[in-house]
Simulated scan of single mutants.
Amino acid sequence: MIKPIKTEEQYEEALERVYHLLQTEPQPQTEKGDELELLVTLIESYEAIHYPMSASDPVAYLKNKMAQNGLKQIDLIPFIGDKAMVSKVLNKKRELTLSMIKRLSKGLNIPATRLIGH
């Protein structure tokens, strides 16, 4: 049974469960797909309170998501472009384009608003 995340230990357990669920590539509207969606929502809620991040820094948000999901720069190639472009974006030498934001949002389940700089 999924419960609210109230402690750091529960947060870590939820992240671990999300990682394992992602490895199985669950389909939407299945038991595992619903569990993944609920856990991500709970994790985001916990993080908003305990690890607030400025919405004005999309690269910091993206790097945080990468760390949470165990992603490396190479994992962003399908969403951003070639290896050089990923490096430029993560080093803030190139801004995210609208098409990159759309692909990242859909592919990594990131709210597009978090990837739009202010």
Rank of each mutant, 00 (worst) to 15 (best):
A67N: 04
A84M: 15
E35G: 10
Y19V: 13
N64M: 01
A48K: 00
A84G: 15
P28L: 15
Y46G: 04
E47L: 08
K72N: 12
P26L: 11
P28Y: 07
Q27S: 14
E35A: 11
G33S: 08
T41Y: 04
I80Q: 02
P52N: 04
G70D: 07
E16P: 06
Q23G: 13
A84N: 15
F79W: 10
K65S: 10
H20E: 15
I77H: 09
Q29P: 12
Y46M: 08
P28Q: 12
L42E: 02
A84Y: 11
P26V: 12
V59R: 06
D57C: 02
E47G: 01
I49A: 04
V40Y: 00
H50S: 06
D57N: 08
L15S: 05
N69K: 08
D75P: 04
F79E: 07
E25L: 13
L39W: 08
N69Y: 15
Q68V: 11
I43Y: 02
D82E: 12
L42Y: 03
P78S: 01
P26M: 13
L38W: 10
I49Y: 04
E35T: 03
G81S: 02
E31Y: 14
L36P: 02
L38Y: 03
A84V: 14
Y46D: 05
L38F: 09
Y11W: 11
H50Q: 06
E37N: 13
D57V: 01
I43L: 14
D57G: 00
R17A: 08
I80T: 03
D57Y: 06
S45N: 07
Q27K: 10
L71I: 06
E25T: 09
E12H: 11
E12R: 08
V40T: 07
E13R: 00
I43Q: 00
H20A: 01
V18R: 05
I43M: 11
E12C: 01
P78C: 07
T24E: 06
